[in-house]
Design a protein around this nucleic acid. Structure first.
Length: 106
DNA sequence: GATCAGGCTCTAA
DNA sequence: ATTAGAGCCTGAT
């Protein structure tokens, strides 16, 4: 099967769009659901190049250790991703998200 | 092309 | 529970 780069990206974005409110998914999980098992890092790259205008729930993507892997601070010096998650009721416990409770089960 | 770095993950200690 | 190291693949130099 021939996969164009943009095609891969599209598939990834599609899956991310499905993550429900109040839930999170890991990079690896997204890659897998998109049918691209070993592309966890690509997911990260795609999100990085994503601009803020995007309506995608990019903040619901975290790493397998239950941590957020970006720095992205707002004007108040707060991490945007954590803030957004907090707004959805996804809380931290010792700087980590309990995947056991919040991970999106497809 | 060859190399390197990157919003990762698994596994072993 | 952390963490270092090795894999993996893609995109940038």
């Amino acid at each position: 099967m021939m996969n164009d780069t943009n095609e891969l990206q599209r598939q990834i974005l599609e899956v991310i769009a499905l993550i429900p409110f109040g839930k999170v998914a890991t990079y690896g999980q997204i890659a897998k659901l998109a049918g691209l098992p070993k592309h966890a890092r690509l997911v990260g790259t795609v999100l990085k190049n994503l601009d803020e205008g995007s309506q995608l729930p990019w903040h619901r993507v975290i790493n397998s250790q239950g941590k957020v892997s970006t720095i992205n601070l707002d004007e108040n010096g707060e991490n945007r991703q954590l803030k957004l998650l907090k707004n959805e009721g996804v809380l931290l416990e010792n700087h980590k998200i309990k995947l056991k409770d919040y991970q999106w089960i497809f």
